[in-house]
Amino acid sequence: MIYNIPYLAVAALILVGLYGVVFKRNLIKMVIGVTLIESGVNLFLITLGYRKGSTAPIYTSSPGGLMSLPVPQALTLTSIVIGVAVLALMLSFIVYIYRHYKTLDARKIGGEDE
């Protein structure tokens, strides 16, 4: 139970990001929420692959002993690059939306005023 603190950190990160996505109305803040969710997923993958007392799975001048799992780390590497690409695409679409609608409020863009 007490060893699950990293998973609680993952849950906290994802929930903060989900709060930003669900409750905020500014598009930039929603993008910040999406990137927080991505960070939570990356942290989750890394913590899944950790073995107690292990080192990185690299043999060059390693101290020997147990090694942590390489596959979650490789998938995290993939996930980070995809996160950067998605972030760039989201921000450029936000610039485009601001040019078109003159606002960043998601509900005004959606056509439902107060």
């Binding site: 139970m1 060893y3 699950n4 998973y7 929930l15 073995r51 107690k52 799992l69 596959v71």
Partner: peptide, 20 residues
């Protein structure tokens, strides 16, 4: 999420590391 975080296997001992 909180219950899933509490009920996952303990940190530092993965379930099935045969492939890795």
């Amino acid at each position: 999420f909180v219950f899933a975080a509490l009920l996952t296997h303990p940190f530092g001992s993965p379930d099935n590391p045969v492939m890795d």
